[in-house]
Nucleic acid binder design. Structure first.
Lengths: 212, 212
DNA sequence: GTCTGGCAGGGGAAAAACCCTGTGGGCCAA
DNA sequence: TTGGCCCACAGGGTTTTTCCCCTGCCAGAC
């Protein structure tokens, strides 16, 4: 009997196209496709809808790949999740794996590699490309002790610093003295290792505190 | 005889999956797939490789969808380009259409809509979804006269302004006087309607001059 | 010739960046 | 209870950078 696969991706065309691809493999067939995590969880209420493998996009609206994977790991541990993403961001990869994904595929993998991944996941329980393995190894040596945590008020400030407002205007908006704002700024420069406001803006965007 | 289609997308899996989808339509077959615009142009040197339709991703490395479409429009006008993208940005859509694309599909279209689009492009020569039509109509009322064009040297400056360098350091790097750099900055502030460097950084990122 | 555009400078006001000090409230432990 | 400590907040004062206005040179285009 063929192994069942569910594709979760918010882009209709992609989920269908990937589904088509999966169906072309002898050992697998697509049970159904979903547009987001919520839709998948709804479907899984019916035991007949529980697949062997979920091919999950990371970036989705409503319920994203990470949250959904976490939920699956808690409630349907028998389901193997393979993450599928264009993201090469270390943090995202690690988050997915921590959430319980059995593998992480870049969207530019070849058809044969997808086939391989599906086979290996069913057989060994996991599949990791070289890229992902490297990220994992790096994350060990990488001094991950300096996980900077920002306070709510600091984040609020950063967002305002990403506009054309002067610090004086930001101070007014936050009902604080300009001097206090300087304090926030200096603290952030210190702990994020930045030289000036431009650095702060780039940091904010990189870390999705502010989205242009 | 079936109409020939070429898929251009930097993500291997996606191009193959979409190819699979196209092959499932009776009236079409995939000639080959490419990873970027350059690869396509290379292929087209051989007349046997000229397809009826190109399904082109907009975001690609090396030679992007817009430039490639422009080139095709100049040199292979008989080839119909259908843009395929997750981007819903008005500007991008307009750019693609101005470059000569015959249609613009969001990547979340359904299989049947892709089929429709392919059929219509072969028959009528174009295919536009409601979204795209709306953008076109909007672009008429929208004052699109202020299409700001930036010079090469200005773009070079903007990129450096998106770092933590001071203007003096930027001047050194560009082998110019700090005063000249001020000139660039002031000209940009003026024509982009900005107040300060932070505004410039946000502008650069929004318009993909600089990617964090 | 004139005109435009890239380049460069002087001078000055404003903002940003970097010092160091101080207050008052909450919290914890002697 | 009290003294010590941390922390958000705020002020004084100074240097550096940014921002703005106005002028001038020179080469290449018209």
């Amino acid at each position: 009997m063929k192994h069942s696969v569910v594709v979760v991706d918010d882009h209709n065309l992609l989920s269908q196209a990937i589904g088509e691809l999966v169906n072309s493999f002898d050992e697998f067939h697509v049970l159904y496709t979903c547009k987001n995590g919520q839709e998948l969880l709804d479907k899984l209420q019916n035991p007949a809808n529980i697949p062997n493998i979920v091919l999950m996009d990371v970036n989705m609206p409503i319920l994203n790949g990470i949250e959904t994977t976490e939920h699956l790991y808690q409630n349907f541990p028998q389901v193997k999740v393979l993450a599928l993403s264009i993201e090469e961001d270390e943090k995202v990869i690690l988050k997915m794996l921590r959430s319980g994904a059995k593998g992480y595929l870049m969207k530019d993998v070849k058809k044969t590699e997808l086939h391989n991944a599906l086979l290996e996941v069913m057989e060994k329980g996991f599949y990791h490309t070289n890229t992902v393995t490297k990220v994992l190894v790096d994350s060990l040596s990488h001094n991950d002790g300096d996980v900077v945590t920002l306070k709510d008020r600091e984040i609020e400030f950063i967002k305002l610093a990403c506009t054309e407002m002067t610090y004086r205007e930001i101070a007014d908006k936050m009902f604080l003295s300009p001097k206090t704002i300087e304090g926030y700024r200096n603290a952030l420069f210190e702990k994020l290792n930045l030289r000036n406001r431009t650095g702060l803006v780039i940091y904010a965007i990189k870390n999705k505190i502010f989205t242009p």
